[in-house]
Write a protein that binds this DNA or RNA. Structure first.
Lengths: 109, 109
DNA sequence: AAAATAAATCGTAATATTGCGATATATAAA
DNA sequence: TTTATATATCGCAATATTACGATTTATTTT
């Protein structure tokens, strides 16, 4: 085998897992933090900043895009990325309610 | 290559990623939800509940244990798992402050 | 101590992820 | 329209994850 058996689980479980997967790599965590630190949505100094190759960064950005977290538009010859704030807030809420719902009924309390 | 270049990133980035990796599979999300639903920390009906093989469930449980989320002790011949509430709350806080810190400075606001 | 049973571990196959060089594509400037 | 430059995509190799049957280990009951 090897492939995840996603069909055994419900939509919410699969979606949480999918989003978690994007956060499951330190490069992507770092990329998100870096983009947010630059108040003007500065672009791919990411290569220099992280020490990863350009192709690799581009790939990580694509994964972050897949879950709707990035907006990009050209400014001059640079592609300038922003975090989609609405989506960001929605994902925060998603994780938070996951943690809260389980925490409330936890047996060790 | 193939291995993650964790040495390029800081401790916090790596730790968030490591925890996210555990949540990055729907089976593990489902397992955590199931354990919390049973107020008496009931054990491995997980195999029946999820439709995965016993070996697979055991493997997933081991990954959840790695980040300190499970406490297990025998009750009769059954191993009975609990979620470690303190650790759970710490991880919730970890995600929440990650989301909050980025959200605050996001350029699309 | 032996039998019964639940969970962990081993071995292995299938699939996915990570990373990067090379190349293609897109945009701005000349 | 050509040139320069930034980003995306392709192809591929290395490594990691997922899944499960078979076996081992741990615990309770007899």
């Amino acid at each position: 085998m090897g492939a995840s058996k996603t069909q055994l689980f419900d939509t919410q479980q699969n979606e949480l897992a999918l989003v978690a997967k994007v956060l499951a790599h330190p490069a992507r965590v770092a990329i998100l933090q870096y983009i947010s630190r630059q108040d003007a949505c500065i672009c791919s100094d990411l290569v220099e900043e992280t020490g990863l190759a350009q192709a690799t960064i581009s790939q990580h950005l694509a994964e972050i895009k897949k879950i709707g977290l990035l907006q990009g538009n050209f400014q001059g010859k640079n592609l300038c990325y922003c975090i989609d704030k609405e989506r960001w807030d929605a994902l925060q809420e998603m994780f938070n309610s996951f943690f809260t719902r389980i925490g409330a009924q936890c047996c060790s309390s």
